[in-house]
């Protein structure tokens, strides 16, 4: 293990004002309530679980970072905070210079729209729309015309090797193809940050490698953060942050 817990905690976070810093966490903790012991119990504080505990890190534009760790270590929680899908209980999360905690739900939605591309483990493509329609989805909120949306989506699908599958619906695509559509969708708005949760988790090795190729290609223009159990991802990342019990145990 490269760094001890005490070393990690002392590792200085990058300056949020630095334009090269795309993502930054400072002493971030996230607690979840377990709910009450029983339906009829009264008063008292509900027991809580601390999913993240004092995490500090910074990720620069152009970095391809893998977040690794066993199940329950806090990978997904950290990813959700970095994707502005959640807010920390304490500490600060900054995305492209914007403090996430200070934002309303609507502002966080806008931040995701303008700055963050997300690739879900289970893809979450809209089954009613074609691959092209799914890729073009994030452009709708930006008020892009249909013609431009279509052209942009086709461009992205071509780049991930699915130019001939643009008119197919998710149900007609393989898992690998669906994940590539999800990646194209995440990149269609040219975001400053790409967040991917277990992007190879449901793919065979060969398809996973192809998906990783596409992710890796995008890393030079943006910060890429991937939560993973997959050693292939870890091997190819510029930097690996390991978590255990909500604490960063190594960052190298």
């Amino acid at each position: 293990m490269a760094d001890s817990v005490s070393e990690q905690r002392s590792r200085p976070a990058a300056d949020a004002a630095d334009p090269a810093t795309a993502l930054r966490c400072e002493r971030v903790a996230r607690e979840y309530s377990r709910g009450r012991d029983s339906l009829f119990s009264r008063g008292g504080d509900a027991p809580t679980v601390r999913a993240l505990d004092g995490v500090s890190l910074s990720i620069a534009t152009g970095e391809f970072v893998a977040i690794a760790g066993p199940s329950g270590s806090g990978k997904s929680t950290l990813l959700h905070l970095l994707a502005a899908l959640d807010t920390p209980t304490t500490g600060d999360v900054t995305v492209a210079g914007t403090d996430v905690r200070s934002l309303s739900s609507r502002q966080r939605t806008t931040l995701r729209r303008d700055t963050i591309g997300i690739v879900f483990q289970h893809f979450h493509l809209l089954p009613a729309l074609s691959a092209r329609g799914n890729v073009a989805l994030p452009l709708i909120e930006r008020g892009v015309s249909k013609r431009d949306r279509r052209a942009r989506a086709d461009e992205l699908l071509e780049q991930v090797g699915l130019g001939d599958r643009a008119g197919h619906k998710p149900g007609e695509l393989s898992g690998g193809e669906q994940q590539r559509v999800a990646i194209a969708r995440a990149l269609v708005s040219d975001p400053a940050v790409l967040i991917a949760d277990e992007p190879t988790g449901e793919l065979d090795t060969e398809t996973g490698q192809r998906v990783l190729d596409y992710i890796e290609q995008t890393a030079s223009e943006r910060a890429v953060v991937v939560a993973t159990h997959d050693d292939h991802v870890i091997d190819r990342a510029d930097r690996v942050i390991r978590l255990r019990d909500g604490i960063v145990v190594s960052d190298a």
Binding site: T109, R113, I118, H124, L126, L137, E141, R185
Partner: peptide, 10 residues
């Protein structure tokens, strides 16, 4: 929920 996560407004 997926649309909201992708930045689609309410």
């Amino acid at each position: 929920a997926a649309l909201k996560a992708l930045g689609t407004s309410s």
